[in-house]
């Protein structure tokens, strides 16, 4: 490949608009879309991992042991699926939805 210095902007575009960096969407932070914010109440959590399985935005972190971690607020869109599906402990939810910025 010839030097990219001195090249025009359009000359540096990848041929055929191929995206060369897999998973580069992580640079796009969708957390700003959120109007409702999920909050995890750890003591009510039974570690069923349903929230993790059902999150459309892969926004529930997992610890090295495969346990539920915190929300990833950089990407969480606040849809509330996790909260609705959370069985919680004895019927008491481990996720509640709250208004963003409250």
């Amino acid at each position: 490949m010839s030097k990219s210095k001195g090249k025009k902007f359009w000359e540096k575009l990848p041929a055929g608009s191929v995206v060369l960096e897999a998973g580069s969407a992580v640079k796009f932070k969708t957390g700003t879309w959120r109007s409702m914010r999920p909050r995890w109440i750890e003591e009510n959590c039974i570690q069923c991992m349903f929230c993790w399985m059902y999150c459309p935005d892969m926004s529930i972190k997992v610890t090295a042991e495969g346990k539920r971690g915190e929300f990833n607020y950089e990407y969480c869109k606040g849809c509330g699926i996790c909260a609705l599906e959370c069985p919680g402990r004895k019927g008491v939810k481990a996720i509640v939805m709250e208004e963003e910025g409250k």
Binding site: A25, V26, V62
Partner: peptide, 18 residues
């Protein structure tokens, strides 16, 4: 719990509706 340790092959940062 085992599945959760795996890597996501579709990442966050996609732009489907909430």
């Amino acid at each position: 719990r085992e599945l959760a340790k795996g890597e996501d092959r579709l990442t966050h940062g996609h732009r489907m509706c909430a």
